[in-house]
Amino acid sequence: MIILAATPIGNLGDASRRLVEALETAKVIAAEDTRTTQRLLAALGIANRPRLIALHDHNEKQRAGELVELARDGDVLLLSDAGMPTVSDPGYGVVAAAAEAGVVVTAIPGPSAVVTALAVSGLPTDRFSFEGFLPRKSGERRAVFTALAREPRTMVFFDSPARVAASLADMAAVFGADRRAAVCRELTKLHEEVARGSLAELVEWAGDGVRGELVVVVAGAERAEVAFPDAVAQVGALVAQGTRLKDAAAEVAGQTGHSSRELYQATLAERASRSGS
């Protein structure tokens, strides 16, 4: 089978017992960076010397088939440099190929920068979206933020310390300076820090430079307080502009908190009323 194994995101003490046992017995390990895996084996005092196969963004398409065939004869352990494979890291292509070929895929769960940052952010955790790494260029970042401007769920992003100040400024420009956020730095490490505040405050905090690995967590948009008849009127306006009724009802429901089904039915009833008169 293919075994996806989560590795520590900073603190070596977070290596699970199952991970250590898997590393001690593995014959084949597919790793994002084989040098990082060798250092992990040494740090955990593991004497096992399995076959190491590099698996990264540039070769995953070519390697996926090979790893699936290897997994038919024995277990293949798949690691990223830190955290859970496939989450903004290599592995998705291998899992998809294995599923198509009928090869079993399982996981050794463990550390995740996404969930850890969300948990300590102080922002709502009941619903969230993970948006991966932010683009390098400001224009592309702003396009991403514009598409997410009405997203009601808490959002989690990866970013680099060299760009985070500019990214926060772009967020403030699109989401609004008062939107709540948190920048989680060096999670589980000695110098762990969580900076919380408005986007305007975090832009100022990042102005002197930020070091280390980062996760940015941003509060979702607050739903506008719109009376139901006004929401129905919004649906009608979108339909008049060419939006399908079902899509218009869903969009307005997301913005206002009203039921999509009730908005749909009310708009149909209003149409029927107008046509009857």
Rank of each mutant, 00 (worst) to 15 (best):
S273N: 10
E21L: 06
T37Q: 06
G276I: 14
R141H: 13
R180E: 05
V252T: 09
G132K: 00
E222P: 03
V183C: 04
D81V: 05
S259G: 10
A113L: 01
K189A: 06
L148T: 07
R39C: 11
F157M: 01
D247F: 10
Y264R: 00
A6N: 06
F228C: 15
A22G: 08
A200K: 07
L77W: 07
I46P: 10
A224V: 15
E213N: 14
D159W: 00
Q234I: 05
G220A: 12
K189I: 02
G93V: 12
T36C: 14
T36Q: 15
V203E: 05
R153L: 01
D57V: 08
G242N: 11
A99N: 11
V235E: 05
A119E: 10
V115E: 12
A99M: 12
D170Y: 00
A219F: 13
K137C: 11
A101I: 05
V164K: 00
A237C: 09
V103D: 02
L168E: 04
D126L: 07
V144M: 13
A42Q: 15
A249M: 08
S138N: 09
A248E: 04
L12P: 13
I3D: 06
E186Y: 03
A169M: 02
P90M: 12
D33Q: 06
C184N: 00
G207I: 07
P229K: 07
G212N: 10
A43L: 15
A96R: 15
S259L: 05
P161C: 07
L78D: 10
S275V: 15
A172G: 03
F133T: 00
L268T: 14
G139Q: 10
M1C: 10
L199N: 06
K246P: 07
A119V: 11
V232P: 13
V20P: 06
L19V: 07
L168D: 03
A219K: 04
A147Q: 14
R63A: 14
N11K: 08
A101F: 04
A162N: 08
D178L: 09
V218M: 10
L238P: 10
D178P: 00
V203P: 03
F145A: 02
A173P: 03
D75L: 02
G254M: 11
H58E: 04
A6W: 13
R179D: 07
A182T: 04
R244C: 06
A99Q: 14
R72G: 05
D33H: 11
T188C: 07
T34G: 12
I3F: 01
T7Y: 06
G110Y: 15
T25W: 05
V156L: 00
V115I: 15
G93I: 13
S275F: 14
L4D: 01
S167M: 01
H258W: 12
S260L: 03
G74V: 02
R127D: 13
G102Y: 13
G91K: 03
E60H: 08
V104M: 14
F128A: 09
R223G: 11
V103M: 04
L12S: 08
D33C: 13
